[in-house]
Simulated scan of single mutants.
Amino acid sequence: MSPENDTTETDSTNTWDRRDALKVMGATGVGLVGASAASGNAAAAGPTAVIDTNPLPVTEGTTVTFDGSNSTGDITKYEWYRNSAGDGFYGVVKEGETFSESFAQGDFSIKLKVTDSNGNTDTSQFSFKVYGDGTATAPIPRIEMVRGGDGEITFDGTRSTSPRGEIVEYEWSRNSAGDGFYGVNFTGPGFFENFADGDFDVRLRVTDEEGQTAEKVITITV
């Protein structure tokens, strides 16, 4: 999928600052993971149940891991419950620090109950939505441009984002407009090049830490 995003072009003769920044700039992205705090029913000095969830958002068929290892206290038992949202919970489906499952499209709830060595308990509940396609989880490529003199253009992809964590790979391709692409010409968050006069297509493909990809193609005139 290639979600649409506007291209930002800034006319400037000061391309050197942007170029130098790209040499040292790492992958950036917007992370999104779920977490749920305890319900507050723990006894004084008792345990605290915490659910960490990854990945989010969730698409149909994706395996989601719910992790209770950040719960606090002298915990001796972890009990997991799950059901469709609003339907209540009907028995333990898994014991242990973590619980993993894939889901159909819909709304679901997970509950974690922890018990410490003194028999004190606490629970935490987490609700989430499972989407039927990858639209909500695909990364969003964004290309920014800075024009210099003599046909020099700097392309910057660092404002690309992903709802499932960081962008870990940037792949750039370019060719004369309409001629297609024949492999990857540059990798990294950005690149610069001196173009001859004419029209050119530039493609940015980004990959996030969950392995999902998306690409954006723009046409420029030099």
Rank of each mutant, 00 (worst) to 15 (best):
G190D: 01
D107T: 11
I143F: 06
G88D: 01
V222G: 05
Y78F: 14
T28H: 10
A35M: 15
A43V: 15
F195I: 08
G61Q: 09
N70F: 10
G132D: 15
S69K: 12
G188F: 08
S2Q: 12
G34E: 07
S173F: 07
I153T: 14
T161S: 12
V146E: 12
E209P: 02
D199L: 08
E171I: 00
T123M: 04
D11S: 15
T7W: 04
M145A: 09
V202W: 05
K111Y: 02
W80N: 05
T8K: 15
V184P: 07
P139A: 05
E144G: 01
P141D: 03
T8P: 04
S162Q: 02
I75Q: 09
P57Q: 03
V184M: 02
I51W: 09
T121I: 10
I51E: 13
D107G: 01
D107N: 14
V33M: 06
I218V: 14
S2W: 08
A44V: 15
F155W: 04
V93C: 03
P189A: 04
T10H: 11
N54D: 12
T221Q: 13
N70M: 11
G198H: 09
T63P: 01
V222K: 13
D197M: 00
G134P: 00
G188L: 03
A214D: 11
F108S: 04
T135G: 09
E4T: 12
F191P: 03
A45S: 13
D133V: 05
T213S: 09
N194S: 09
V24Y: 10
